[in-house]
Amino acid sequence: MTARDRVRIMRIRDWARPVPPARREVLHATPETDEGKPPVLFVPGFGHGAWAFAEHWLEHAAARGFAAYAVSLRGHGGSAAAPKATLRAYAHDVVQVAAGLPRQAVLVGHGAGALVVTRALARYPARAAVLLAPVLGDLGTVVTALRRNPVGTLPALVGGRLRLTRRQLFSRELPEPVARAYQARLGRAAARAQWQVLAHRAPEPPVGDPPVLVVGSPDDRVVPARALDRAAARYGHAPLLFPGMGHDLMLDARWREPIDAILDWLDKGASF
């Protein structure tokens, strides 16, 4: 057993300094009949709010029989402002929403939201987890971002706002005005949380041993293909790839393909 697999039960920080509550926005779509499928909770990445999933995926998942929820991390979307938030506070938001659902939930995290999900998995025994174009803080991702978009990335390294370009987020297939409208809705994560993406302790192991799926695009200009392979290898399999798509798989023109693949995986029993 490696140190990474060791569940840590002394959590004095959690006990002595619990995360203060914050008002959270949760959007949802529920299926017409309950088929006994697990609820799915989507966790947007930094800068995105629950709206990013409300655009297509929530309704689509509901149409396929999954109760679908999306949370805005504090400081994002319709949730309360939180300029001092940390990864721990974001993970707290996810666990609070997940534990409030009627049944054991599947967690789906996008971008840095996937990093938040890996943290949440140590505090909540998810039914399964999906890491979508995960930004897990390896150096390769940062170098790629700096090379492709130095003007938008550099300020984030000194606590400023991260500005991702249209080409990083979406494929050319997405009509220009739609892409611009999405970009206008982007906000920012707290500066401390941004730093923590680069410098954080390895997440504690997931509780309850959930199956984990990594999904991404080889043409993602934020998360390089190598980073996807590494993330998937950590959970003992290969990533599920959707060539030709940008980083925002849930908003891009071909948004239907990845969500269908994820729901198929869940329908099959989430076995990998």
């Binding site: 039960i9 914050a22 666990v95 609070q96 534990a99 309850g208």
Partner: peptide, 15 residues
Amino acid sequence: SKPFTQFPDFPMPDS
């Protein structure tokens, strides 16, 4: 208080 009372993998509601 709550952090000492709840199950470590199923927190009581923030409210």
